[in-house]
């Protein structure tokens, strides 16, 4: 499991200790204020290449807000986000996507009226030029990749059906396939197993394992068994701040986390 970083602590750049090698993602000192509510208060998140990183914490701890700040859905009030050597703090979601950052929403966001095939094609063709789109120049070229993604997620047999015909769990897989189709460097998954059966959760874990070779993963999830099974490192948030960050074993042994989070859960 632990092919990523194995040390217990890896403070983010900007917190006084330089990382040994530049991480793929380094969100540092993130503050996000909504009116009178401070959703994030100096939170940080560091993810190494090929690492599976879990983001956990009680409801309202700021997990989804931190995820949104990384993806570009929210702009941090203060703080910085560096991705793949670039400062993307002010970049738009589209610019971040083009830089190799991909997001799966918490609420399933497949396009129900489109076929499974077209959902994947839509994700894949995002970097095609305008002329290429108008004259459908990449439709043939992308065919194998579309079918490849559907096969990888065991959906190829239903490629021609509308996404609305899928079960909730299958729609979640389709959306993960859509997020992975453009071959991102970092995939952000916000509660990917929400509403899934135990068997579907197990399968989801197995479906995610092969991406480790070329992609890092940040996952927000309430299912701690699922997180423990697939992640190398965890960051625990509480009331908008990072409570602890480290390997799964480190977090499991952390008295602070047990006190504030695990017991509460």
């Amino acid at each position: 499991m632990a092919t990523g970083m194995v040390t217990a602590e890896a403070p983010p750049a900007g917190r006084g200790q330089a990382a040994a090698a530049e991480p793929l993602l380094a969100a540092a000192d993130i503050v996000k204020v909504f009116g009178k509510l401070t959703a994030l208060n100096g939170a940080y998140l560091t993810v190494a290449p090929n690492e599976f990183h879990g983001l956990i914490g009680p409801n309202g701890s700021g997990k989804s807000t931190l995820m949104k700040c990384v993806a570009g859905a929210e702009t941090p009030t203060t703080g910085s986000v560096r991705f793949d050597g670039r400062d993307i703090t002010a970049a738009s979601p589209a610019e971040r996507a083009r830089a190799g950052l991909s997001l799966k929403f918490q609420i399933t966001s497949v396009l129900p009226a489109l076929t499974l095939y077209d959902n994947i094609l839509l994700a894949l063709q995002a970097r095609t030029s305008l002329a290429g789109l108008v004259f459908s120049r990449t439709r043939g070229v992308l065919h194998d990749r579309v079918m490849g993604m559907l096969e990888q997620f065991r959906l190829a047999d239903r490629a021609g059906e509308p996404a609305s015909a899928l079960s909730h769990g299958q729609q979640q897989w389709l959306e993960i396939a859509m997020a992975l189709a453009p071959e991102p460097k970092l995939l952000l998954l916000d509660e990917p197993t929400g509403g899934m059966s135990l068997e579907e959760r197990r399968v989801t874990g197995e479906l995610l394992q092969p991406i480790r070779a070329h992609c890092s993963l940040v996952i927000v999830e309430h299912d701690l068994d699922f997180i423990r099974d697939i992640c190398d490192r965890l960051t625990v948030l509480d009331q908008g701040s990072v409570l602890d960050s480290g390997t799964v074993q480190h977090i499991q042994a952390s008295p602070q986390v047990q006190e504030v989070y695990l017991r509460r859960a």
Binding site: F105, S109, L114, L121, L122, Q125, L130
Partner: peptide, 24 residues
Amino acid sequence: SQFGLALTGLRENEARITFFGYQV
């Protein structure tokens, strides 16, 4: 065309296709 597919995505779920990298 593929442009039409992008328009369909835009009409059905603008936020989703923004996060694919489309300049909506």
